[in-house]
Design a binder for these strands. Structure first.
Lengths: 211, 211
DNA sequence: TTTTGTGAACTAGTTCACAGCT
DNA sequence: AGCTGTGAACTAGTTCACAAAA
């Protein structure tokens, strides 16, 4: 299972939620592909890997497939998230409505600055001392850490998260992290994203036509 | 040129900056690969595509290669960025130190809520009326838009950005955008990222060993 | 008839391995 | 001797196209 595939599963889930809210009960890979600009064969292949969810001649039952996808993605249980770094970005992520909507629970923000500890985010996420990370991870069953600290302390904080038993990290700090093999890191590198866009601007190579 | 390649070019640039700050003047693809967990052949191939920057028997001159990379990535000129959506995330991005550091200039935040217009972010980025987007894009030569609005208005705001002459969009809103062929969109989908991590937690399939 | 599930074909991306330059 | 630049080999990912099921 590649990461590209798991990303797509999440996209499919979102599409199905959209369709369900429109009252659509059944959908073919073809129509799903057309509506959301995906490839029908790829949808079928991705789904077929996990079971025979479709009905030939009919397509997929939206509600059923949604349930299956949630189960495959491990979203059929409460997932608690700790946000490490109570800076601007950490705060914004703590209050990001999308996370709660999708069933993630932001357990707390963590920081090492004493004056921040004890405060809380706009939506009420408490800021705790990073020294208590391990304790809270154990107590509340936190399974995902979102790393939103400056690049200079990212590795150190990641090490702490790993030592606390965290097995999944969403890393917003620049650069890559060194973690054990059983810990999964997903990076969101804002500088790389912008610089990559800059490249495309400089080379105007999107949809080059004749010549 | 694939997006994977342009992302790597940005990573190489960061690595070189790191090396330069350590006073290292010359580096081989091998040692670059070892230090930053990359593949030496890939580094050489990526770079060789744009010219013969290396010296056989020596490696690459850090300063020279850095300059070349900045030029290839289009970072050798001022790039102005508009942030669309002055919510939590928009604010955090406006003040994100990494952007300024890398030479991007945040021209303004834009919002449609009248009470926000006229205020400014902690670091002094002004909030302007989104109705003035086109005017400001032209006047200040804004070339990149960062989309940080709710999913429900993302497409509409993207359309506005495109109509204003923007050719590159970094999209933090969930879902994909429909834009003309000459506009490049890069998505950062927080929900997809977290759900993908959830999958890996549920299947513990990182570094599966015996069996 | 419609649409799935899937082997086969294809396309893209990565790594190897070495000739050739310094 | 050391290291680049690069064709060739390999690996991963996508799309096609069709037999089989409803």
């Amino acid at each position: 299972m590649s990461e590209l595939t798991t990303n797509r599963l999440s996209v499919y889930l979102r599409c199905l939620t959209e369709l369900e809210s429109q009252g659509i009960r059944t959908v073919s890979s073809q129509s799903l592909a057309e509506q959301f600009h995906l490839n029908a064969a790829q949808i079928r292949k991705d789904l077929a890997y996990f079971g025979e969810f479709g009905v030939r001649g009919v397509g997929y039952y939206v509600r059923d497939l949604k349930r299956h996808l949630r189960q495959i993605l491990g979203l059929d249980r409460r997932l608690r998230v700790a946000i490490l770094g109570a800076g601007n970005l950490g705060f914004a992520l703590a209050d990001y409505p999308g996370f709660r909507q999708e069933g993630f629970e932001i357990a707390a923000l963590f920081d090492n600055q004493r004056e921040k500890v004890g405060q809380q985010s706009r939506s009420g996420v408490p800021i705790l001392d990073i020294a208590d990370l391990r304790k809270v991870v154990k107590r509340d069953g936190v399974s995902i850490a979102v790393l939103a600290v400056p690049g200079s302390s990212a590795q150190q904080v990641a090490d702490l998260a790993v030592a606390s038993g965290i097995k999944a990290i969403l890393n917003f700090s620049p650069g890559s992290l060194q973690v054990p093999d059983d810990v999964k890191v997903k990076g969101v590198d804002l500088t790389v994203s912008l610089e990559s866009l800059s490249f495309f601007l400089a080379h105007g190579d999107v949809a080059e036509q004749t010549e």
